[in-house]
Design a protein around this nucleic acid. Structure first.
Lengths: 170, 170
DNA sequence: ACAATTTAAGTTATACTATAACAAAACATA
DNA sequence: TATGTTTTGTTATAGTATAACTTAAATTGT
């Protein structure tokens, strides 16, 4: 097994993840002459609270706490902007959003989502992309957008599951 | 380019698709001692009206016309049953449902969805599956459920798009 | 600096998707 | 036919997302 991505390392320094994500976002938006307004930056920071996808409505209370309007359009607009800039991805199967760990060139992720702890990894999976592209090309289908979301158990939770099954058996 | 699946052949005999889908469903449910009730069969038939994913609420009027209760739980229950039997798939990125052309062994499809005409093909794509499984295995992630939904342009609509662009240019 | 224009945020209302919870009916089986 | 189980009817509500219009802030040209 190869080195785990941070999402699957419970003990990693997550402050660093947040800090880096915000830094990259500021740099990219600046380069692109896009306005990373306070609301947008806050929403991005909130999304990066964890490596778990968050629903739009889960962000509203924190927006209110920060003194902003906290009606749904506010958070959806911020999320729309962040998605357009490739800073967050939407997970269609969960109606939720997650920060992109390598924003920059436009891309669509391939996500591994743990059904137990919700931790989610975004793979940059060339083989998956290639397989999809080949299948599509074979039918003359032109791809514009890909949604690849895989739900299962992360290594940590397989552990826990095994433990609890064992406990049940005792 | 290989032979197109029926979904991408506008002129195909679709009555045959419907008939076959219903026949397979009856056979499978019978084998499994599951009850394909009138409501469930009607919902399946409605889903098979076309090769385009349909929203749950789009089915309600037809249920009402047929004299059934047409509150949301009715159609969602039928869809739940049909999904459990592998007779329909849910397309998460569209909140919509589509008939499975090869029901039987449990599986998760890989879908090519035309953003112009909505026609959708379910691929039985071993290479895509394999690529996903390899990537997951590499991280020690155990897969339970896969969502692969690819949006783009089908061969027919590329044609149309090209034509309309050409017309615009004239 | 000012006015004009564009972009973002506030606000209210509402559309769309899905499920909870309980009652009534239909079915399966003894 | 009595019994338990499954399905359907029914009402209400939860959860997700956007439309439409107003106000405010930032940007641009002069």
């Amino acid at each position: 097994m190869s080195k785990q991505p941070l999402s699957f390392q419970p003990g990693h320094n997550h402050d660093r993840c947040i800090h880096e994500a915000l830094h990259k976002a500021r740099t990219l938006c600046s380069e692109r002459k896009q306005r990373l307004t306070p609301i947008r930056e806050l929403v991005l920071q909130l999304i990066w609270q964890s490596h778990k996808p968050l629903g739009a409505y889960e962000l509203l209370p924190a927006l209110a706490d920060a003194g902003f309007n906290s009606a749904p359009p506010t958070v959806y607009r911020a999320l729309d902007f962040l998605q357009a800039q490739g800073l967050v991805h939407r997970i269609a199967s969960l109606n939720a959003f997650i920060g992109c760990p390598h924003p920059g060139p436009a891309h669509q992720g391939c996500f591994l989502i743990c059904r137990s702890c919700s931790c989610t990894v975004e793979l940059e999976s060339a083989p998956v992309q290639n397989a999809i592209h080949n299948s599509a090309a074979h039918l003359g289908f032109v791809i514009e957008q890909e949604t690849v979301e895989v739900v299962g158990l992360c290594p940590n939770c397989q552990q826990s599951d095994a433990n609890s099954l064992q406990r049940e058996a005792e």
